[in-house]
Design a protein around this nucleic acid. Sequence first.
DNA 1: CAAGTTATTGCAACCGTTTGCGATTACTAA
DNA 2: TTAGTAATCGCAAACGGTTGCAATAACTTG
Lengths: 150, 150
Amino acid sequence: MIKHEKAIETLRLKGHRLTPQRLIVLSTIASGDGHMGVDEVFQAAKKAYPYMDIATVYRTLHLFKELGVVTEVAIGDRLHFELTDPEGHHHHMVCRACNGAFNLSPHYLAEFRETLNKEFGFEPDLEHFAVSGVCAKCQEADRKSGGNQG
Amino acid sequence: MIKHEKAIETLRLKGHRLTPQRLIVLSTIASGDGHMGVDEVFQAAKKAYPYMDIATVYRTLHLFKELGVVTEVAIGDRLHFELTDPEGHHHHMVCRACNGAFNLSPHYLAEFRETLNKEFGFEPDLEHFAVSGVCAKCQEADRKSGGNQG
DNA sequence: CAAGTTATTGCAACCGTTTGCGATTACTAA
DNA sequence: TTAGTAATCGCAAACGGTTGCAATAACTTG
Ligand SMILES: [Mn+2]
Ligand SMILES: [Mn+2]
Ligand SMILES: [Zn+2]
Ligand SMILES: [Zn+2]
């Protein structure tokens, strides 16, 4: 609950207005644990503030992302957001079968980034990366029920 | 021009119908070089067949993808398609500044895949992967014109 | 070649997300 | 406390992409 304070301070310092909509989206994200889909945020926020519009939710989340307050994660083909992890960056493995999202330490991608950098001069966007795939559990379930080779 | 034949044969063998729409989308993709955005394909195809609908283009491209005839690449937030490379898989580095796409040999990601596999049992989707970032040229241009630190 | 079957099409409606715009409201400064 | 202002809002329209459905047309069989 005190993490709000810091985010609010950030808003104010950068000259952004403190509107009820922004405060509600902020506390919605802060009270949920882990990633929230945009519609989850919208529905929860609308309960606290019935005039809330989906466009406002998107604009607010994008602003928060720009300010570093939240982090965007593409899960499946939907956008999700989470409060930025103060412990540091992390990536995700997202299961395309069960939609589960598992955190992944950045060191697993550090080497990949370095290689692209050195060999091609290419600086990849890997700040918060979600790699899609199939998790161990779903692979097993799939194997049992004859997923693709009966 | 002979690569059509193989794709057409594939369609026929799997019991799909040979419609003018499919043949036109196929030759459109085959005559363009490299990735084409969906709208590029649509506009070109519409010239050859004015009734062409965008939904048909999407359905056709998805069918071709399923058959292995074309490969889907997400560039920025738009879908692109290219004739499947008979020389083998490759990935892409896509520059978010100039939209340039550079091919990347699969071995750069092989290790990453193996690590996720061994450590987490996670099987990532990395068949045709596009990593976004900034290419060497654009980094330099950015540096000269004072991109982000004066 | 004609008729029947069914995959495929064009269209329109929809999805999640973004954007333009005129109305509202948070802030600033008297 | 009050205006003045510009940022922000709600709304509606648009975007790229997907989907349901009735009409069409590619194939099959004779
Ligand atoms: Mn995360
Ligand atoms: Mn390619
Ligand atoms: Zn799973
Ligand atoms: Zn570039």
